[in-house]
């Protein structure tokens, strides 16, 4: 049971990390929290369901297209809703919260309250470490999550675009003085943040089916991960995501399944009490 709970924790933790990376990137650059993050995660699940199941596309193509569509949607949201609120953090909070409720109700209207599930990638199960059998689909999700996380790290740490991202999140005005078009960067990074939520969505949808409100707990956990890891820190997201995934699953296995999302909240309170800047956060001046 311990091994199985740990394995589940790792899989879901990787997805939390992925969702949190999207939130963290946007917070770091724009100081905006996207409360509709969970609904974009669900949107990608629905897209991949429609493309692969209804239109009969190959599942890889469907996933890539779903992520691309959510990326475009994110850019559209940034352009129409977020951009006019620059410098007024309160309005971006309110707008994205309204957006999340609008999207939830739109899904409910279009797809109904029933769970929808895109087709799985692989079938069967693998005997892990000679200890227990584990679904191949979940193992594949873990690998896919790790690959996307690695991709984000390379993008941010090694490329020219990543250098612009890091410069802007450190000092926006200085980056502007050095010729960075921060408005365009905001648009791209908001889209990228949404695309990361979408990536988490398409990876996890074959394991946990999508419903109109299934994004809420995932987004809440992603927010807790971001606070735990430290706003804007990439490593914080990975470590925090894995910690929360493990805590949630071990807690569900040994204490109570009904309360598995409450453990996250207890962690959030402890972090706020003891170290509000988070594990890897830098104190803001």
């Amino acid at each position: 049971m311990l091994a199985l709970a740990t394995m589940n924790g790792l899989v879901i933790g990787a997805i939390y990390a992925l969702a949190a990376l999207g939130v963290s990137l946007v917070v770091g650059i724009m100081n905006v929290i996207n409360f509709a993050h969970g609904e974009l995660y669900i949107l990608a699940g629905y897209f991949s369901y429609i493309l692969a199941d209804t239109l009969g596309m190959h599942f890889v193509l469907a996933m890539v297209l779903a992520v691309a569509l959510v990326f475009l949607f994110g850019i559209f949201v940034e352009y129409t809703l977020i951009r006019p609120t620059y410098g007024n953090d309160m309005y971006s909070l309110i707008l994205t919260f309204i957006l999340s409720i609008v999207l939830q109700n739109a899904y409910l209207l279009i797809f109904g309250p029933y769970p929808n599930k895109p087709p799985g990638w692989v079938g069967g199960a693998t005997h892990v470490f000679g200890a227990f059998y584990y679904g191949n689909q979940r193992l594949a999700a873990l690998v896919a999550g790790a690959v996307v996380i690695a991709f984000v790290f390379v993008l941010v740490k090694k490329t020219w675009f990543g250098r612009i991202i890091r410069a802007t999140s450190q000092d926006r005005e200085m980056a502007e003085l050095n010729g960075v078009n921060t408005t365009r960067l905001n648009m791209l990074s908001f889209g990228l943040g949404c695309a990361l939520a979408a990536a988490a969505g398409v990876i996890l949808a074959p394991v946990f089916p999508v419903t109109p409100t299934a994004g809420v707990p995932v987004a809440l956990t992603a927010f807790v991960v971001v606070v735990l890891g430290g706003m804007g820190s990439l490593w914080g997201c990975v470590v925090g995501g894995l910690i929360l995934g493990l805590v949630e699953n071990l807690g569900a296995a040994y204490i109570s399944t009904g309360y598995k999302h409450v453990f996250n909240f207890i962690i959030l309170i402890l972090v706020l009490l003891v170290r509000p800047a988070g594990l890897f956060g830098r104190r803001e001046a």
Binding site: I33, F35, P217, L220, V224, H261, N264, F265
Partner: peptide, 16 residues
């Protein structure tokens, strides 16, 4: 901590 932290914590609070 202000702003964003209050919104996040209160969202978590109501969900809990």
């Amino acid at each position: 901590m202000g702003g964003i932290y209050l919104s996040l914590t209160t969202l978590g609070f109501s969900e809990i």
